[in-house]
Write a protein that binds this DNA or RNA. Structure first.
Lengths: 270, 270
DNA sequence: TATTTGCAACTTGTATACTAGTTAAATCTC
DNA sequence: GAGATTTAACTAGTATACAAGTTGCAAATA
């Protein structure tokens, strides 16, 4: 990896682009200019690979595509009307998130849910969100509190109507908001990636009676503690909230053993 | 994302592959068969894309390639003697780790170090490792303790000899070992990914006198607390150890502002 | 009938040609 | 000479052809 920059292409110091800030990646203002008219420049940045990726990502995350299902490049090619190149790009992105498994010269399959990864995801999420909520206590503004209360109200409404998917989205938004308020939006991205595998698993379990109401109560407890400025209580409330996730696990390969992989993965070197 | 499996390709139930475990990804035992002769099947699984990826990853992580440096696909093509396809695959993997920035139709550049990401990485790492070390207290076996003591001895030796790079590797191994002992090797993978950006930054700062000895002292304090079965002390020792990382930050764009990006990134939707 | 062997139809990995967009330098205009 | 405009040389995204390996069925053999 010697040169790359001191090499042939940029010989003269004048237009030598090495590490010059004027020559850094030029930022383009994407399609979010004047907010009203998104005309035709809005979706322009989404490449074919992006579209395939997002569609597959959603289908795998929602368990619409079940673990082990083959996802052949050729089939996707026909399905999306694009060539193999963007399809492959999408699949390789998904492979990095362990949402698909690519077996060279053999096939590509919807990723099986890693059991050990599930446990680690829950543990890691709890550690991160407890830390986040502690920081939220100090940093949340009055506007933030208003937003959180509005979110709680929205959750109540969705729960009453029994709209599960929107409720799930609102739940995510709630936790994401806490992370943002704490000043750690990037950490929420990490959590979200971890969460996907857990969410996939939970699609397999029956929704428990009254769970939504319980979630709202726990969310409310967190918000109350934040508003009271009580970090310890907020942390404990969040910990208890997330601990509920562990309960209905334990029955892993009971019904669908083929959806899971029990390996203590060795091939992990990203 | 309707079918993919109930679709044309696998019509008859007999060889319908949907979610059948017999049809799950066939595990190949890679080049590690009879351990002696790896003949020519050993390196066969590493594709060209893997090689390019690993080489670039190392060069970027070690700051051999500085932020903002253009990494043209064509140049890499010539450098590695492969076509654009594997080069692009490698770059797209790196883009997902934010180690390169791909600007469509314009160029690909070594990723600038995200300042906000640095802070979040340190905070997240601390939360995770403190949680990990608490779990280590309960789960570490006598063999584990022996291993940790050996690691400490090795660190002392490397520090005495002033071998910085091996010391850094030993430091990583120490933390990775704690995570494994706690039962969360996957969480270490997350931490490692976070750590890369921090490591890149630290390459820019001068190594402080006596820092290695301090690190060893702190590591020793952690191990002592684990051996004593004192989770609180172990957690506090780890927290203090990792807090040291924050200290010499603050002087961000001082010398090399062009290496950093201060955005509160909006384009984040992996 | 049970076993082996070979082949045919898949799969992903790679190379390459082409498209469309960007950028900066060179040229033209005033 | 200064500024606006054209243009040529880049860039990454995509399509497609080919190479190499895997898999499972089918036919041949015992």
């Amino acid at each position: 990896m010697a040169s790359e920059s001191t090499e042939g292409r940029t010989p003269n110091p004048k237009d030598g682009r090495v590490s010059g800030n004027q020559d850094a990646p030029r930022k383009r203002s994407p399609g979010q200019g004047p907010r009203g008219a998104a005309r035709f420049s809005s979706s322009s940045d989404r490449t074919s690979a992006d579209i395939v990726y997002e569609k597959l990502h959603g289908a795998i995350a929602s368990m619409e595509l079940l673990p082990g299902t083959p996802v052949s490049e050729l089939t996707l090619t026909r399905e999306f009307g694009v060539s193999r190149t963007p399809v492959r790009a999408a699949l390789q992105r998904l492979a990095k998130e362990k949402l698909v498994e690519i077996v060279p010269k053999s096939g590509t399959f919807v990723g099986r849910i890693p059991v050990s990864g599930l446990i680690e995801a829950i543990v890691a999420r709890r550690a991160l969100e407890v830390m986040i909520v502690r920081n939220t206590v100090d940093r949340a503004t009055p506007d933030d509190m208003t937003y959180l209360r509005d979110q709680l109200a929205r959750q109540r409404m969705l729960a009453d109507r029994g709209e599960l998917a929107p409720f799930h989205a609102a739940d995510e938004a709630f936790h994401a908001a806490l992370a943002t308020m704490a000043g750690y939006p990037g950490i929420w991205d990490i959590i979200r990636t971890l969460k996907i595998q857990v969410d996939r698993y939970r699609q397999l379990t029956l929704p428990q009676e009254g769970r939504l109401e319980m979630v709202i109560r726990e969310h409310t407890a967190v918000v109350d503690a934040i508003e009271a400025g009580d970090a310890d209580t907020a942390a404990r409330a969040m910990e208890e909230h997330l601990d509920k996730l562990q309960l209905d696990i334990e029955v892993f390969g009971q019904d669908h053993p083929e959806y899971f992989i029990h390996d203590r993965a060795v091939d992990d070197q990203v």
